[in-house]
Lab assay of single mutants.
Amino acid sequence: MQNSHSGVNQLGGVFVNGRPLPDSTRQKIVELAHSGARPCDISRILQVSNGCVSKILGRYYETGSIRPRAIGGSKPRVATPEVVSKIAQYKRECPSIFAWEIRDRLLSEGVCTNDNIPSVSSINRVLRNLASEKQQMGADGMYDKLRMLNGQTGSWGTRPGWYPGTSVPGQPTQDGCQQQEGGGENTNSISSNGEDSDEAQMRLQLKRKLQRNRTSFTQEQIEALEKEFERTHYPDVFARERLAAKIDLPEARIQVWFSNRRAKWRREEKLRNQRRQASNTPSHIPISSSFSTSVYQPIPQPTTPVSSFTSGSMLGRTDTALTNTYSALPPMPSFTMANNLPMQPPVPSQTSSYSCMLPTSPSVNGRSYDTYTPPHMQTHMNSQPMGTSGTTSTGLISPGVSVPVQVPGSEPDMSQYWPRLQ
Rank of each mutant, 00 (worst) to 15 (best):
Q10A: 10
P39D: 05
K91Y: 02
R44Y: 10
P20F: 01
V14H: 06
E62G: 12
T80Y: 06
R26H: 01
K134T: 11
S85D: 13
N124R: 14
D140G: 10
G138Q: 07
S121R: 01
K86D: 07
I45R: 10
E109P: 07
Y90N: 08
L46M: 15
S4N: 12
V30M: 08
Q136P: 11
S49A: 02
V126K: 15
T25A: 15
L107H: 06
P81R: 10
G64P: 01
S119G: 00
G18R: 00
S119V: 03
K55G: 02
D41E: 09
S6G: 14
E62C: 06
L127Q: 15
G73R: 00
Q2M: 09
Y143C: 12
G7A: 14
V16P: 04
Y60D: 04
V126H: 02
C40G: 07
L106Y: 04
N50L: 15
Q27E: 14
D104A: 11
Q2E: 10
R103P: 03
A70P: 07
Q135P: 14
I66S: 08
V78H: 02
V83M: 03
N17S: 05
R44F: 01
C40F: 05
V83E: 01
C112Q: 06
K86G: 14
P20C: 02
V83H: 03
Q2W: 14
L21T: 12
Q27S: 14
G18P: 00
G72S: 00
I56Y: 04
Q2F: 10
Q27V: 12
P20D: 04
S54P: 05
R92Y: 05
S119K: 02
T80H: 05
I42G: 02
L32E: 03
P22T: 04
C40I: 12
G7K: 05
K134C: 05
K134I: 11
N150A: 13
P81M: 08
G7S: 06
K28A: 10
S108Q: 13
D144T: 10
S96D: 15
L11N: 06
L146H: 07
D115S: 08
I117K: 08
V84Q: 08
G73H: 00
S96R: 12
Q2D: 10
I102E: 01
E101C: 08
G138I: 09
R44A: 12
E109G: 13
I42P: 00
R38H: 02
K75G: 04
F15Y: 08
T113L: 11
R69S: 07
V83S: 09
V53W: 00
P81Y: 15
W100L: 05
S24N: 14
L11V: 05
L11R: 07
R26D: 00
Q136I: 09
H5P: 13
S35H: 15
N50S: 07
F15W: 05
E31P: 03
I117Y: 10
C52E: 02
R125L: 00
N124Y: 14
L11P: 02
I102L: 10
F15E: 00
S54G: 15
E31G: 14
D144A: 11
P39R: 15
K91F: 02
I97D: 10
G13L: 02
S74Q: 03
I87N: 00
P22H: 07
P20A: 10
